[in-house]
Design a protein around this nucleic acid. Structure first.
Length: 195
DNA sequence: CCATAGATGCACT
DNA sequence: GTGCATCTATGGA
């Protein structure tokens, strides 16, 4: 017996062309995808878009040593050190644009995540870009690496029926009103509530 | 639940 | 020296 809510969802590794485009569109498209880093990861429940002509973006003042990856090819990681402590993971799309992974629902390698994070309950393991980076073992060496299905993987579902939340980005002061943060409705793994 | 201070690396003024 | 795309511990309502 099938009901109308029964759906066969197939997840497939994305092609490089999937990433080549606008950050806002990609940030939305990545909600419900699966992010896997060296066998550890889960369902993407929160993202943010950063564009080139965007005062909140690290790329807004042009290419530097730090943001070099944001000006490299699409589908590669841009990893930066946040507040001197955390490693945060982006995927580069159009030139000077990237999507920040802000939260995932832990799915694969949860034990490894707990060891790296130290003590947390499931809802807090990957709820926030710094927490996610720590749980997934992200560091400087991942900067510029490709999402090619080896160390770094993105799989997308064949269909997405979930509602997607939209709101302003977190922790910025410039361009703070733009609705470029996306979330999976009802997820208990978000870094913060949507208004 | 909310507010705040401190930790910490590093690009930029 | 200043300012972060953050997180944690702590204290109060």
């Amino acid at each position: 017996m099938r009901t109308s809510s029964d759906q066969l969802v197939v997840r497939s590794l994305v092609q490089p062309s999937f990433f080549d485009g606008d950050a806002v569109a990609l940030a939305r498209a990545l909600i419900g995808a699966t992010l896997i880093v060296r066998g550890v990861g889960g369902l993407v429940v929160e993202t943010e878009a950063y564009r080139h002509d965007d005062a909140a973006s690290h790329s807004s003042n042009g290419e530097t040593v730090r943001n070099r990856a944001m000006f490299g090819p699409p589908g590669h990681a841009y990893v930066y050190r946040s507040y001197g402590i955390h490693w945060c993971l982006n995927v580069v799309c159009a030139r000077g644009q990237a999507v920040l992974f802000r939260a995932i629902e832990p799915g694969l390698g949860v034990d490894a995540m707990r060891v790296r994070r130290g003590r947390d309950k499931l809802e807090d393991l990957c709820a926030g870009p710094g927490r996610l980076g720590q749980a997934l073992g992200i560091d400087r060496a991942d900067d510029g690496q490709p999402f090619d299905g080896c160390d770094l993987q993105i799989h997308v579902p064949s269909m997405m029926s979930q509602r997607i939340l939209v709101g302003p980005r977190i922790g910025i002061t410039k361009n703070a009103d733009l609705p470029w943060r996306f979330g999976l409705s009802g997820s208990p793994h978000l870094s913060r509530r949507f208004a």
